[in-house]
């Protein structure tokens, strides 16, 4: 099951890249498409942050991950490198669980 999804999603992602290089320019130059596509990653990434911080399965929960997110927000605002942001959040959650 995981393999099927891995291959399907990889093919889809590759197809999108190939389409950009191959399709007639005017197809993708449609103004509404140009405005809409950049909004999708913003909304999806924000939704991923929210759901992966405040839920387990279908249940809303408030646990150490919320504190970890606060630390990550601070790290991002300080323009810390990617790995530092992720490591700071993970370390926060790990330390709070130890206490």
């Amino acid at each position: 099951m995981i393999w099927g999804a891995v291959i399907a999603a990889s093919v889809a992602c590759y197809g999108l890249k190939l389409a950009g290089l191959s399709l007639p320019q005017h197809w993708l130059q449609e103004a509404r498409l140009q405005r809409t596509i950049p909004l999708i990653p913003i909304a999806l990434l924000a939704a991923l942050v929210a759901t992966q911080t405040f839920s387990t399965g279908q249940h809303l929960v408030l646990d150490v991950r919320a504190a970890a997110l606060v630390v990550a927000v601070i790290a991002v605002m300080l323009r810390a490198p990617f790995l530092v942001v992720v490591a700071a959040a993970a370390a926060t959650a790990a330390l709070l669980r130890l206490i």
Partner: peptide, 24 residues
């Protein structure tokens, strides 16, 4: 997070849509 692998695949493809604009 316990979601279906196909939901994961769909989300990945949606996020990949911006690469089409880069290709353009």
């Amino acid at each position: 997070a316990g979601g279906s692998v196909w939901t994961g695949a769909a989300t990945a493809a949606l996020l990949g849509s911006r690469n089409a604009l880069y290709g353009l």
